[in-house]
Simulated scan of single mutants.
Amino acid sequence: MTSIADTAFKTLEEQGRLLNAVLKGPTEKPGRFGFRGELALIFQEQLADEKRPPERSVDQVIAVANVGESTIPFFCCYLHSFEWLTDLAQVTKGLFSPEGKYFIFCNNIDLLSKYEVEIDGVTYNVLPIDESTVYNELLELLYLDKGDLKKLTTGGKTDAVADAALGFNAKFDVISYAQGVERMGPVRNRNANRPV
């Protein structure tokens, strides 16, 4: 059986960073482990034995890792602010590779912008997100039909998304992290205009 201890998720699991998992287990593809949930970036100080939620985390994570490989080939998430990209890069340092595909859907970049940002040799595809979910945005970006995936298990859906993402080779505007910070807008309240 595919174990998290045999994949690049091992470090993040040991650090207690993989939270609120919808999927944390083998996918349908032999030797592949999937994770869907939340990744803690910065922990709150803990007093005694109380368990506090992280001070900063990325949500809606969809990622896979293969048994026997030291890096995570595919990872995507929702980032509340573009500025947090360096926190993500720090937490995943050594776990992401120059060959991997990493998609960061960001709250506070212009809705018409799509960027490639390189940090420590790893390229992040930074995309805007409006009121949709990372999963829906990714399906649209990768030209996957939601109807085709409906009958699949959570692991099967994760495989389909990961396989399509690993073949993704569109190019976006290349900017530096500093340029991204300059261009980013205020963090939008995604619930502001929603009916109650």
Results as ranks from 00 to 15, higher is better:
I42R: 12
L18H: 11
E116D: 12
K146W: 04
G167F: 00
N108L: 01
A8P: 02
D173M: 05
Q44W: 04
K10Y: 06
F74H: 07
I4A: 13
Y115H: 12
N107I: 02
K51F: 04
A89K: 02
E137R: 15
I109T: 01
G180R: 09
R183Q: 11
C77Y: 05
F75W: 13
G31L: 02
F74G: 02
V117K: 08
R188L: 13
K51A: 10
V117L: 09
G156F: 07
V58G: 05
M184I: 00
V22R: 15
V58F: 08
D120M: 05
L19Q: 07
K29Q: 14
R52N: 09
A48I: 03
L111F: 10
I72S: 04
E137F: 00
T158P: 02
T7A: 12
D49E: 14
H80A: 10
L85P: 02
E14R: 15
P73S: 07
E116M: 14
N136I: 04
E45L: 06
S70M: 11
Y135R: 15
G167I: 00
A192V: 04
T153P: 03
A8N: 11
P98N: 01
L95S: 09
A89L: 00
L142N: 07
V161P: 01
T2V: 15
P98H: 08
V122F: 07
G31T: 10
F35H: 12
T153M: 04
I42G: 00
E69Q: 13
L23K: 12
L149T: 03
K29L: 08
F33L: 05
T158W: 05
L141H: 11
S70W: 05
L19H: 07
G121N: 14
P73L: 06
S176Y: 08
I109R: 08
G31K: 07
Y143K: 14
T71D: 07
L41V: 03
L19E: 12
E45M: 08
A48C: 05
V174I: 06
N169G: 13
E137T: 10
I4G: 05
I129W: 14
Q179V: 01
C77F: 01
K150N: 08
V196A: 14
L47S: 10
F74A: 10
T123G: 01
A165Y: 10
V126D: 06
T2H: 08
I119M: 08
Y177D: 02
E38C: 03
L39F: 02
V196Y: 13
I72A: 09
D6N: 15
